[in-house]
């Protein structure tokens, strides 16, 4: 399935930010209350990078389109700290970035080539896990925020959830 745009009209209160939800020493203790207070799943855009399934919050992604023929780059792997891999089905993700100097619109989006398939899924809150503290302390992946175990991934693989906006910032 090709992803064409992130929904932007859902109430913000349903969207507990991945950053906000998982930061801080009380993350574990508030997980249960988050689960109870958030009605729906968290919309995530999934794609492949470095041979892994990766997720960005959908609200930080404007859209996706097929990459130009012959377009290959390992920019996304370098941004996330993942090993370089050849993209078999390259797609362009438009990552939203905050407007500067009062400018508006999508001129500040950053286009990143990722490997497909690109999917928009509703990830159940209960499938999202904060990083275990020792892993958080030792990971070399940039802006890795959480892990998920979900049927969308292979039985022996975890889904890597990143802060896409931070990873793709200048």
């Amino acid at each position: 399935m090709s992803y064409v745009g992130a929904p932007e009209t859902r109430p913000e209160m349903l969207y507990e930010s991945l950053n906000g939800a998982l930061d801080g020493p009380i993350a574990a203790s508030i997980e249960a209350s988050i689960t109870a207070s958030i009605a729906g799943p968290l919309d995530m855009v999934l794609f492949s990078a470095g041979g892994w399934r990766v997720g960005f919050e959908a609200r930080g992604v404007r859209g996706a389109r097929p990459a130009p023929t012959g377009a290959t780059t390992n920019e996304i792997e370098a941004l996330l700290g993942l090993p370089a891999a050849v993209a078999r089905a390259p797609q362009v993700l438009a990552i939203k970035r905050p407007a500067r100097d009062g400018q508006r619109g999508d001129e500040h989006d950053r286009d990143i080539i990722v490997d497909g398939p690109v999917e928009l899924i509703g990830l159940p809150i209960t499938a999202i896990h904060p990083l275990p503290p020792l892993l958080a302390a030792r990971t070399r992946l940039h802006e890795l925020r959480a892990l998920a175990l979900h049927p969308a991934t292979a039985a022996t693989a975890v889904l890597l959830l990143f802060d896409g906006e931070a990873a793709c910032a200048d």
Partner: peptide, 27 residues
Amino acid sequence: ADVFFVPGCPPSLEGVINVRGDIESVI
């Protein structure tokens, strides 16, 4: 326990395990 490998970690961090719905690292 099934250990799920996580990339970008030192060799001494084997991965994560699912313990009744919670994820724990394995060192």
